Amino acid sequence: MSTPIQVAVQPVRFEQADGFTIAGIGGRFSQSSISQIPQLWQRFEPHIGKVPGQVGEHTYGVCCNADANGNFDYIAGVQVEGVELLPAGFQGVELKPQRYAVFEHHGSLDNLKATFQAIWHDWLPQSGEQVAQAPEFERYGKDFDPFASHSVMEIWLPLDRKK
Rank of each mutant, 00 (worst) to 15 (best):
A118G: 08
V51T: 02
A66N: 02
P11V: 07
W156L: 05
K142S: 12
G89W: 11
G92I: 05
E138T: 13
R13Y: 01
V7K: 07
I37H: 03
I48N: 00
F147Y: 13
P146N: 07
G107S: 09
F116Q: 07
T21K: 14
G107F: 15
P158I: 00
A134G: 15
Q130S: 09
Q36T: 11
Q36K: 14
L109P: 08
H47P: 06
Q130T: 15
H58R: 02
W120T: 07
D143T: 04
P146Q: 14
I37G: 06
P97I: 14
S32F: 09
E104W: 09
T3I: 13
Q31K: 12
G89H: 11
G89Q: 01
F90W: 01
L109Q: 15
H121E: 14
A132Q: 11
S30W: 00
H105E: 07
C63I: 08
P146Y: 04
I25Q: 14
D145R: 06
V83F: 05
M153L: 15
Q6L: 13
I34K: 08
G27F: 10
Q31P: 05
Q54I: 03
A17K: 11
Q16D: 09
V55C: 01
S127F: 05
E129L: 07
E138K: 00
H150W: 09
P11L: 01
P11Q: 04
G61S: 10
A118S: 12
I5Y: 13
H58T: 01
R13I: 01
I25N: 06
V83G: 07
D160Y: 01
A76W: 00
A68N: 11
S30H: 08
Q10R: 08
S35K: 02
I155Y: 00
A148W: 14
Q42W: 02
T3L: 15
Q54A: 02
P46A: 00
P11F: 08
S33W: 07
P87N: 10
V83W: 06
P97S: 09
D160L: 12
G26R: 13
A101L: 07
L85T: 14
K96H: 06
L86V: 02
E81K: 08
D110T: 10
S30A: 03
G89I: 12
H150C: 07
A114W: 03
E94P: 06
F116G: 09
V51A: 02
S149A: 15
V131A: 10
G92W: 01
Q36D: 13
A68G: 08
F144Y: 14
V152T: 12
I5H: 13
I22F: 05
N65Y: 06
E15K: 08
T115G: 06
Q42M: 02
L86Q: 10
G107T: 10
F144T: 04
Y74M: 00
W123Q: 00
F72I: 12
Q42L: 03
P146L: 15
V93I: 10
S2V: 11
R99M: 02
S35L: 08
L124T: 13
P125Q: 06
A23Y: 02
Y60G: 12
V131P: 12
R139Y: 04
P125Y: 04
P87L: 09
F147E: 14
L85W: 05
Q130G: 09
A134S: 12
A132R: 15
Q39L: 09
Q31F: 14
W123V: 06
